[in-house]
Amino acid sequence: MMRRVLVFLAVAGLAAALLPLALGTGVPEAPGALATAYLEDAPGDFGAANVVTAIVVSYRGFDTLGEVAVLFAATAGVGALLTRKRLGIGDAEPADKPAATEILVTATGLLTGLLVMFGVYIFLHGHLTPGGGFQGGVVIATALLLGLLARPESKLSHGILSAVESLSGAAYVGMGLAGAFLAWGFLDPRVLPLGRIGSLVSAGSIPVIYSLIGLKVGAELSGILDALKGDRE
């Protein structure tokens, strides 16, 4: 009973704190000065049609680099916690997982290539249309998830996964350093020609960097799924 009262008091206090935010602020009429500057300058600065991508990859690129590092740390934590040894599962445990149905196996064979291709399409067009490295990476992880569902006894090749992850991470930092030495600053995309707004090859190195982010995120999320499946050595 005491706990219920305390929980009610905590929630009521938070509600009182959030009340002015929910009811009093209203909707702004125009974006602030920083957003206006981004909207006006992004096409001229970097030639990117999608302003959100320009902010994520270049204006606030350092933020995204830190975010990818956090994702890597969390993936490493999940992988370290959920090994077979830590979970107390010996090799002797019989594989009691039921085999996948034929429909799932056939659909996986047909769809895996298409899904990977769709993911690559999403992150290659990140500077033109909604989408980008994170969404494309998730689509690629979905393709690997289908594979795990269709063949429960199969193991993902950890060598390939970690090679993709570390190579794309190193290349991401390398593109940032190239920006620092050849252009104005770390992660400046103007090391490659900007091109015409709206064409696939444009916006300097933004598509390259976003593709690298997509590969890294895809490999990391596949690693999380594989670790949760629980067959890590």
Binding site: V70, A74, L81, L82, V217, I224, A227
Partner: peptide, 16 residues
């Protein structure tokens, strides 16, 4: 955009 991706990683860590 970045907060959503971090959210998934944190949820996975919590669950593990």
């Amino acid at each position: 955009l970045t907060a959503i991706v971090i959210g998934l990683a944190v949820t996975a860590l919590q669950l593990s």
